[in-house]
């Protein structure tokens, strides 16, 4: 999986450079998020602007990250969801769990 990591202030931004986040590739994102939280990072923002499709495994990995963040009094926020990805969050009601922002800048302003 192609993930770019950058730091903006106290936030670590993970940009997923994949068209799909599914059972084939999502474990790599789970591993990367866990590595960051275990390394002491508290605030992670996942930028999904290039992800056109997400399946239940991809959603599960984000839930795992959310729980890992919460356990450490950190945050996992999401931004730049494409319409089909957003519809899967709504179908599974995960839009009520995550803080979801339209853009990276809007998400950064929330910290």
């Amino acid at each position: 999986m192609n993930i770019k990591t950058e730091t903006q202030g106290k936030v670590r931004i993970l940009t997923v450079h994949e068209e799909r986040l599914d059972a084939h590739n999502s474990e790599a994102l789970k591993t990367e998020m866990l590595r960051l939280f275990e390394g002491g990072v508290l605030n992670v923002l996942v930028d999904l602007k290039e992800v056109r499709f997400i399946d239940s495994s991809g959603l599960g990995v984000l839930v795992s990250g959310f729980k890992n963040a919460s356990t450490r009094q950190g945050t996992l926020k999401l931004c730049s969801l494409q319409s089909q990805v957003k519809s899967m969050f709504e179908l599974t009601r995960l839009h009520r769990v995550f803080d979801i922002f339209l853009t990276v800048d809007e998400a950064l302003d929330s910290y």
Binding site: D55, S56, S57, L59, G60, V61, V63, S64, F66, K67, M88, L91, T92, R93, L94, R96, V97
Partner: peptide
């Protein structure tokens, strides 16, 4: 219906049924 949002698994069949 919809699985508990904090479950990491168990959404696949729900999505198909939906």
């Amino acid at each position: 219906g919809c699985p508990d949002p904090l479950n990491e698994q168990g959404r696949g069949i729900y999505i198909i049924r939906s």
